[in-house]
Design a protein around this nucleic acid. Sequence first.
DNA 1: GCCAACGTTGGC
DNA 2: GCCAACGTTGGC
Length: 139
Amino acid sequence: MRYWLFKSETSTWSWEQQVAKGEAGEEWDGVRNYQARNFMREMSLGDRGFFYLSQKDKKIVGIVEVCAEAHPDSTTDDDRWDCVDIKAIEPLPKHVTLDQIKTEPKLAEMVLVKNSRLSVQPVTEAEWALICAMGGLGG
DNA sequence: GCCAACGTTGGC
DNA sequence: GCCAACGTTGGC
């Protein structure tokens, strides 16, 4: 299984909206960036991801799972753009802020730190485990 | 609200 | 195929 990070803004698509979609999940549409699209094409059913809020919040608030692999983005006729579907799994008991991530030396190489503008990013297994622990999940 | 960083576009 | 101009993103 691989790990990812999905970036959103509360004003565009909130964690609450994602949770409201339940098991069915929702298309992660609107991505118009080749790098981000390519990562989505690499995703497999069951891959997990962080749900990160940019701009005002700047923190990871929950865990999502890929529930449909890459398919054409229904919000455009342009066949260059694909997207996956994701569903909410659980919220992080403690939100992990960008500030915390930047303060943790072990996370200095995260794409979130290195290339903050990329809206869909890969996360390493080590980064995943550490952030889950920081967020009060698992053991 | 500003601006730096980055990606995309289009003229040559 | 290069590169300047432009638009967008997102942290501050």
